[in-house]
């Protein structure tokens, strides 16, 4: 049935319009909530979105098992996932770029170095250091400052190093799972995939602990100047992606354990999730180097 000449074009589908409504309610609800309104719309939207995704993926899985999906169609999914990950890379690039700009240009200028060093006239007493423990505001206004720096920062060689080991290991375990899947060894696959999910959850646990430490003991918050800003935005968006990746892998695990999905030669759902996992892993390596190690 699957041949080049019969690309499966689904008949009409209600999924997209419901997905639209879900996405719209989520976005509108988030804006409304952040602006001080109620959070109901956001949660209704997010729930609707999750429901639609459930049914959408179920439909795709059903079609695939019914043999409707040609190799050509599967290549479309491969292209789709690949370029989606690339778009995520560019999203992180914006934040890494911001960090680079701040450290290479903005802070030296504020501290009186380089082409726009005159700027220091406005922030007399401010010195360019990284991590930025004393913000320009604090350097000028002392106790009256609105934006003060952190008391201390996260030591890269404790929790972050542990998390690096955890995440790197999880990339290996998900790869091993993949190898077993291709050999048709379902139990081993389930075991290694389950291990990966556990490592993902462990990473998130330590990340939460690190944030707790930062907020409660170190005075390192989103509001503690540009160091806290870049630190939390980069690690926070990464954490959100790890959460999503863990959920994706967990669903793959459940599909395998409960529904016995995936064949040795046909398991793109899992493969896409594992690519995503490798991607968040690579981002973490970048974070560990540029945010933690070079940032301390």
């Amino acid at each position: 049935m699957a041949s080049e000449s019969s690309y499966y074009v689904p008949e009409q589908s209600r999924l997209p319009i419901f997905a639209t409504i879900g996405l719209f309610l989520t976005a509108f609800g988030a804006a409304n909530w952040i602006n001080g309104g109620s959070s109901y719309i956001f949660f209704i939207g997010a729930l609707a979105m999750a429901g639609v995704l459930w049914f959408w993926f179920a439909a795709v899985i059903r079609e695939n098992m019914a043999g409707l999906n040609s190799d050509q169609l599967k290549r479309s999914y491969v292209w789709g996932m690949g370029w989606f990950i690339f778009s995520e890379v560019m999203f992180f690039a914006a934040f890494f770029g911001a960090l680079y700009y701040i450290r290479t240009f903005a802070l030296p200028w504020l501290g009186g170095e380089g082409d726009r060093g005159e700027s220091n006239m406005l922030w007399q007493g401010f010195e360019n250091t990284w991590p930025l423990m004393v913000t320009p505001d604090a350097a000028v206004h002392g106790d009256a400052a609105k934006v003060v720096g952190p008391n201390d920062i996260i030591d890269p060689w404790h929790l972050p190093l542990l998390n690096t080991v955890i995440l790197l290991t999880s990339s290996v375990t998900v790869h091993i799972a993949h190898v077993f899947l291709k050999k048709g060894k379902r139990n081993a696959f389930n075991l290694w995939l389950g291990l990966t999910v556990l490592l993902g959850a462990l990473f998130l646990f330590f990340q939460v602990e690190e944030y707790y430490e930062a907020y409660v003991h170190l005075g390192l918050t989103l509001e503690s100047g540009i160091y806290g800003t870049t630190f939390f935005m980069l690690t926070g968006f990464h954490g959100a992606h790890v959460t999503l990746g863990t959920i994706m892998l967990l669903i793959m695990l459940l599909r395998s354990v409960i529904a016995h999905h995936f064949k040795p030669d046909d398991h793109f759902g899992f493969e896409a999730s594992s690519w995503y996992w490798h991607f968040v892993d690579v981002v973490w390596v970048g974070l560990f180097i540029f945010v933690y190690v070079l940032g301390s």
């Binding site: 914006a94 911001a98 913000t135 320009p136 505001d137 989103l222 540009i226 160091y227 806290g228 800003t229």
Partner: peptide
Amino acid sequence: PVLAGVVTMMLMDIHFGTSFFSAAGGG
């Protein structure tokens, strides 16, 4: 995605006290 990034920075600066675009905090 870069556009999404920059509006996210705006959102954070407006509502969550970050300092991307404010020299007082080093942005």
